[in-house]
Amino acid sequence: MTADPHANRISPLAGFAGVSDARLDVREIPFLRQTNVRADPARLLPAWADRLPLAPGTWRRSGETDILYLGPDEWLAIGDLTPVPAEPRADTARRVGQDDVILTDVSAQRTIARVAGPGARDLLAHGCALDLHPSVFGPGRCAQTMLARAQVILMARERDEFWILVRASFARYLAAWIADAAVDY
């Protein structure tokens, strides 16, 4: 047992050198807490209704947490999800009433690759069939889709900055794909 409880954890892209040049910057953002949120949007407590983006394909910042719309009853929170009063904690399985907001810890399920720079949109377009034009997929938008042959959650952050959430087992494949596609930028 070690003093640092995190000393021997390894992120899925620990071996990924990243990409760094004038047009493109790609690197992993490891170990962010992620929580899957399931709830019936029609029966949300006000405290939750204020935090969850209800418009499809959007994400919203709530305190230190970014909450992404995944589906009509599903969201993903990135960052520490401070519990709403009278709601269960993210990492417990206790049940509070019948209209639970169900929280599932999925921190290790996906890692995050940050792709930024003026070449970011063109790079992603090589593997993503979505229209990434800033007027269509600008900051505040997110989508579950395919990038190359991996399922991803794509998040448009600041101008020319995207986060790609990719499942841990696919992360190396996707990183290799990005590195290969980046040679043109």
Binding site: P56, G57, A129, Q144
Partner: peptide, 9 residues
């Protein structure tokens, strides 16, 4: 929910 997407999805 997500809008028009390619058949492959």
């Amino acid at each position: 929910w997500c809008g028009p997407r390619d058949e492959a999805e």
